[in-house]
């Protein structure tokens, strides 16, 4: 079972509001952005413009073909932050193939659509798209 499958299973086993609690735990556990990326963030680089909240992501493929993801999302946008944290947890140090196999409808698979509603899924799918695109460009 991949890390992502484990996360999906965790969400699916939870009921209703419990899923939001798991998402909040992810939001709270997003690792801080490594210091070397802070100047780039302050210069406005690597922002995902499709998201209304300021979401910054650095997606790197190492010489050993490992994907590395560093991200920054304000705590005032916990839903987006939680979602990004799931992607970091699932794909940091994973292979490119694993990233490309990520379902585009991950939010549905996590059972979050009815809780968040269509209106609030803004930008989340575009984060997956951006992640995959970066991995393809760097392969």
């Amino acid at each position: 079972m991949s890390k992502l499958d484990g996360i999906i299973a965790e969400f699916q086993e939870a009921q209703g509001e419990e899923r939001l609690e798991i998402l909040l735990e992810f939001a709270e556990s997003l690792p801080p952005l490594p210091e070397e990326y802070i100047p780039q963030k302050e210069a406005g680089l690597n922002r995902i413009h499709e998201c209304q909240s300021p979401v910054f992501m650095w997606i790197i493929v190492s010489s050993e073909k490992k994907v590395k993801i560093y991200a920054d999302v304000p705590m005032e946008a916990p839903t987006v932050r939680g979602f990004v944290s799931i992607l970091v947890e699932a794909f940091h140090e994973s292979s490119q193939e694993e990233v490309l196999a990520c379902p585009n409808d991950l939010i549905h698979k996590l059972g979050l659509v009815s809780l968040l509603g269509m209106m609030r899924l803004s930008g989340l799918t575009s984060i997956i798209r951006r992640l995959k695109q970066s991995v393809i460009e760097k392969s």
Binding site: L20, L24, E76, A77, P78, T79, L116, G117, R120
Partner: peptide, 27 residues
């Protein structure tokens, strides 16, 4: 709030959460 989780990250003492979608709109 727009963000459904924001209240849970911290709110004004004694504040009650009302979600515009899950509480106020018919499903």
């Amino acid at each position: 709030n727009e963000d459904i989780l924001l209240y849970s990250t911290g709110h004004v003492a004694n504040a009650i959460k009302i979600d515009w979608q899950n509480d106020l709109q018919d499903s």
